[in-house]
């Protein structure tokens, strides 16, 4: 493109006398901060602080938190140890050891003997969820985790396997089948308060 694009020249004007005097502009600036201050004291007009931990911010249904291994009705993992998530993981933080499922079951297939995710290695990209062909691994909205040792962070079947029926508010990132789930809560809810309530 040889023609120059439409431009706005936003060179500043030279400082006028009022600006050179400095005090007036600074007072105007102080007016802005005073407006915010008084607004917050009386009505919390500008307050945005989420008062964690008393008030927990609702993240969307797509939040990528700690993983959940979805269970079958009999409580065993739905996972068939196909290693697809292990392969898809950019951090190589998933470790699976497979074993044969009981031979007398109807579906003669594999299941994970060991399924470990290093939660400290994990980058929570959700690619394991995308990769799973059985919808056996999904992500929860559990994102507040802390550990005191490195060993503690390796979560096995005992931590990851779903134990009670999944409620909607537990589940995070998972397949959506094209439906636009999730909603955006704006402004971020804040506890009302201030001197005038």
């Amino acid at each position: 493109m040889s023609s120059t694009p439409e431009v706005i020249v936003c060179d500043p004007k030279p400082m006028g006398l009022l600006q050179r005097l400095y005090v007036i502009e600074v007072l105007k600036g102080l007016g802005v901060t005073l407006r915010h201050f008084l607004g917050n004291v009386f009505r919390r007009t500008y307050t945005v602080t989420v008062e964690w931990p008393e008030v927990k911010r609702e993240y969307s249904e797509r939040l990528r938190g700690r993983h959940i291994l979805v269970a079958r009705e009999d409580g065993s993992p739905r996972c068939v140890a196909c290693y697809m998530c292990e392969e898809a993981c950019p951090a190589d933080c998933i470790y699976i050891e497979a074993e044969e499922r009981d031979s007398d079951s109807v579906e003669f297939e594999k299941r994970p003997k060991v399924f470990e995710i290093d939660l400290l290695r994990c980058v929570y990209c959700g690619f394991c969820v995308d990769a799973c062909p059985k919808e056996a691994i999904i992500m929860s909205r559990v994102h507040e985790m802390t550990f005191t040792t490195r060993d503690e962070s390796v979560a096995g079947l005992d931590v990851l396997l779903q134990k009670k029926p999944l409620r909607k508010e537990d589940m995070g990132y998972r397949p959506y089948y094209g439906k636009p789930h999730s909603h955006i809560e704006l402004p971020i809810p804040v506890k009302p308060g201030g001197l005038l309530g």
Binding site: P53, Y124, H143, T146, F147, S153
Partner: peptide, 27 residues
């Protein structure tokens, strides 16, 4: 892992952790 070099008291997972996770780490 920085524990190659210095001792660590609290590990906060996440990439990056949510602000709540760090607050929890501090608590």
């Amino acid at each position: 892992g920085i524990d190659e070099f210095i001792p660590v008291d609290v590990y906060v997972p996440g990439c990056p952790p949510t602000p709540e996770a760090l607050l929890k780490g501090v608590v």
